[in-house]
């Protein structure tokens, strides 16, 4: 069991680091998805450990939510791209200080 969770923490952390270092908004977003996936792994593993299905339901909800989130997120990225011709998150820094 521990190894599943450890894997999940690793994937989660990698995803988090990805958010910090990638500049392409789409990849950043993919990294967030990686984090969600890592969470799902944890949920599923814990479900097995505790012997109830709540974890699996949680993972299911996460997938649904992720789908909705991706729709919105990609729409936002596209609309930004239309205006700025870039998907680099570093270029979106008019708002600061």
């Amino acid at each position: 069991m521990t190894e599943y969770i450890t894997l999940s923490t690793l994937l989660f952390s990698i995803g988090a680091v990805g958010v910090l270092v990638r500049r392409n908004a789409i990849i950043v977003f993919m990294c967030v998805e990686l984090m969600l996936n890592a969470t799902n792994l944890a949920f599923v593993s814990f479900a097995r450990q505790h012997g109830n299905l709540d974890g699996q339901v949680a993972a299911f909800f996460v997938m649904v939510v992720a789908a909705a989130e991706v729709t919105i997120g990609l729409a936002i990225i596209v609309s930004i791209y239309r205006t700025r011709r870039t998907t680099s998150v570093d270029d979106a820094n008019l708002l600061k200080a």
């Binding site: 958010v19 950043v28 600061k96």
Partner: peptide, 17 residues
């Protein structure tokens, strides 16, 4: 203190992490 507010979303993410 306003300097960390760089406008870069990745810096903010770093702050969150």
């Amino acid at each position: 203190l306003r300097k960390p507010q760089t406008g870069f979303v990745r810096s903010y993410a770093l702050m969150v992490l």
